[in-house]
Design a protein around this nucleic acid. Structure first.
Lengths: 167, 167
DNA sequence: TATTGTTATACTCTATAACTATA
DNA sequence: TATAGTTATAGAGTATAACAATA
């Protein structure tokens, strides 16, 4: 039902010149998914710039923060917490361990598990990064007032935290 | 300053059991970028399900909507409008053209440009998809009231539409 | 048998550079 | 020379299946 039905070729000559550049007035403007994506791209772009000096990716930052908050967290816990798949955690922790920011400690009680801890270097770095990340968020959302920024955060949490069935 | 400084190994045995699963209380909860990412993933997941029957990706949907709103839009205009790179537009339009949903028409005035139009099939499909997308957004944000949903949309637009310098 | 972590793999998305054909 | 579109390519990010060690 979707292929090779090629109908209606437009007789108009295209390009009346001076086209879009914005999506104003289109249905896209009403699409939550589209707005989320665009806003996320903008905020992540600022984040990338802020972290470039330290060569830290978003997922690495998130991992560092979680490990800091829950020292000894296992890889499966981390996967669950961040809603990512176990194989991703492996390379994530590998990268942090190679850089001396975190380390795996085999759990004595259940020798299948690894507790993950920050090194002193990791602790120092994550402290610095948290400040940079906050500053980056502020810069990326300069068009919002402080009240609006908090509103946005609250609404977003409400969206992603609700578990109807999935996620 | 970032590598091979491995300090401080934790003496504690890891895993006090009963760990996270949520990021509550962590700095992550305060990170706009993180909240945006999580919310976007959730909304996109619903979108994927809604579009699976029609095998339409988010970028394809956005393209169809823009072409519908601006018949004869050029590929470079589309790239600008959606904030994507020209090479992506090529494969995007290829996929739509192969399926008989859109077609390129060489512009007479400037034969380097292609105006893009929807076919009748494309027009019919995009009409159907817009309904599905709206329904999908509603389902993904069931935890929000209608007022909150509009607030969220307004705030997101305010974030991504503001052009300080980049984007 | 089930679970933790791992390897391998593949597919999508995205970004860049270099090419062509027109202007 | 500059622009529209294209090709090729490579790097992230993401998802899946299969495996080893441990329980």
């Amino acid at each position: 039902m979707t292929t090779s039905k090629k109908t209606s070729s437009p007789e108009q000559t295209p390009l009346e010149e001076a086209y879009p550049t914005t999506v104003e007035g289109l249905v896209l403007e009403e699409r939550l998914g589209y707005a989320l994506r665009r806003a996320q791209l903008k905020v992540f772009k600022h984040f990338d710039e802020a972290m470039r000096e330290h060569d830290i990716r978003p997922a690495q930052f998130s991992s560092l923060v979680v490990i800091e908050g829950y020292p000894g967290v296992t890889q499966s816990n981390l996967a669950q917490t961040l809603s990512i798949d176990p194989p991703r955690v492996v390379s994530l922790i590998n990268s942090l361990e190679e850089r001396g920011l975190a380390l795996r400690v085999r759990c004595k009680r259940d020798r299948r598990s690894h507790g993950i801890f920050l090194t002193k270097t990791g602790e120092a770095l994550v402290d610095r990064l948290k400040g940079l990340a906050e500053q980056s968020d502020l810069e990326a959302t300069q068009s919002l007032s402080e009240i609006e920024r908090r509103q946005l955060l609250t609404l977003l949490r409400k969206v992603y935290a609700s578990e109807e069935s999935d996620d």
